[in-house]
Design a protein around this nucleic acid. Structure first.
Lengths: 258, 258
DNA sequence: CCACCAACCTATCACAGGTTAATGCCCGCT
DNA sequence: AGCGGGCATTAACCTGTGATAGGTTGGTGG
């Protein structure tokens, strides 16, 4: 999509969920926002806050951490194009802490904008709803991941999920993903100890499934990783590539007006 | 609320989430539905189905089980008043299996009804959305439960959650809950082995926190169970009792019309 | 009354993963 | 260049939970 457009990843994400006409997407161009750079391990939203703006992630990773659990368990991860706290449109009270994993860039957008957007375009309204449902489906899948997989397959599955979610917004197409997060972060997301996360990563390396050097992960055997993790991307509710390009401006409507 | 009304538990649930005027609630009286009795361990919806109706639980418990995982892990539990598959209003493809734990009674309601309901009443539309968000919050909490608690506190936490959710719809007020489900079911929900679930329950008994005899559980030390589980019901997004009664018919509106 | 079945309970053993702590590495800072 | 502080790595040890296998109880039907 438009390469220079700051919100292009949001556009990618939305069109991956629902059919949107160019008219609908045009509504995003006057999205008011303030751009904020976040440092590593810095909080974006704190437990108990009342949100009045949504937090659209432009670059990097954000994580939701469960409040008042000493181990700082990570309950969700956001990738670029995600609106981290979309649900605050309807329940503004923040439950949990939203932290950056590594440096990140976010756009803060007033709730008001999305409410008006939804009122103006039913298709957009629907797309936002599907975004909420997709988040829900991902969350359910994390439940499955924690409940039924061991450490190795759990880590593998998480990496598969992140990779595909990045690919939706045009990142990691070559299976190289930036990893500004630490092994401890990965451990916190998989609910294993940092030490065991390390053991696990080394086993993935030893099996020639991936390399993790410095701040990038390269998946060298995608098929193998998918097989190991028993990964099925269906739950991410991504439409097929076929359908995933913007619908043309509805000509019939123009005719009707004329 | 109206005791004889078949959908009173749904009313309880909705009003616990949002302020609803009597006018809004009246819209529920012509809800078309077919009542279905489900046997224990019987499937209500199967992975891959396309839903055209929503499944409102009237009595008993339903569980979502992850598809194609041999251990039959339970990823969510529904209590009376819940609409088990509300999300199918927007994404009708079923992901997972919906099974009854013990005998259950459900009302099948055409999607169409809810769509019209939402179109007619903004307050209802909002309440349904909040119901989806509440489900999401519960799911996130299951992630926390599996990720950060050991078997004992995990079971304790689940029992706390179910108890409070039942109380919202007027059940288990005396901390006695019907438990038509088996210890294996509980194990599947907590991702532990049935044997260990048994050990765990016995420890809860030994600590005089509860009794589980036959098909009812009696929680004899609610405070103690809450403390053990570190249970905080905030995530269930239940409004305070104060707010939780129906709003009076908005007189002002009538005046405006007149 | 007994056969049968499902659920519940108990005992034992093995192992995945947690805990702790020591070491090494790399990178930024003065 | 030297220093300090995260972070990755390795090792030794320990514990919670899974697996298996068997015994008990209670309800249901012949």
């Amino acid at each position: 999509m438009q390469a220079g457009f700051a919100f292009s990843k949001l556009v990618d994400r939305l069109t991956s969920l629902a059919g949107l006409a160019t008219d609908d997407l045009d509504l995003l161009t006057d999205m008011p926002s303030s751009i904020v750079h976040i440092g590593p391990r810095q909080a974006v939203l704190r437990h108990g806050d009342e949100a009045t703006r949504c937090c659209l992630l432009l670059q990097g990773y954000l994580s939701w951490q469960s409040p008042e659990s000493p181990d700082g368990q990570i309950t969700a991860i956001c990738v670029p194009g995600d609106i981290a706290d979309l649900h605050t449109l309807y329940r503004p009270r923040i439950d949990g802490n939203l932290m950056a994993l590594g440096p990140a860039i976010v756009a803060l957008v007033p709730h008001r904008f999305f409410h008006e957007l939804a009122a103006r375009s039913p298709a957009m309204s629907r797309a936002l709803l599907l975004m909420l449902l997709a988040d829900h489906a991902i969350q359910r899948n994390w439940t499955i991941n924690l409940g039924s997989r061991d450490a190795l397959t759990r880590v593998a599955h998480l990496l598969c999920e992140i990779t595909v979610r990045l690919q939706v917004v045009g990142l990691a197409r070559d299976f190289r993903l930036s990893s500004p997060f630490t092994q401890s972060d990965l451990a916190a997301a998989c609910s294993i100890s940092p030490v065991h996360a390390n053991r696990t990563i080394q086993e993935l390396r030893r099996s020639n499934l991936l390399q993790w050097r410095g701040k990038t992960i390269e998946i060298t055997d995608w098929r193998g990783l998918v097989r190991l993790a028993d990964f099925n991307p269906a739950y991410l509710s991504i439409r097929s590539q076929e359908d995933a390009r913007p619908l043309p401006r509805p000509v019939t409507a123009a005719v009707a007006v004329a």
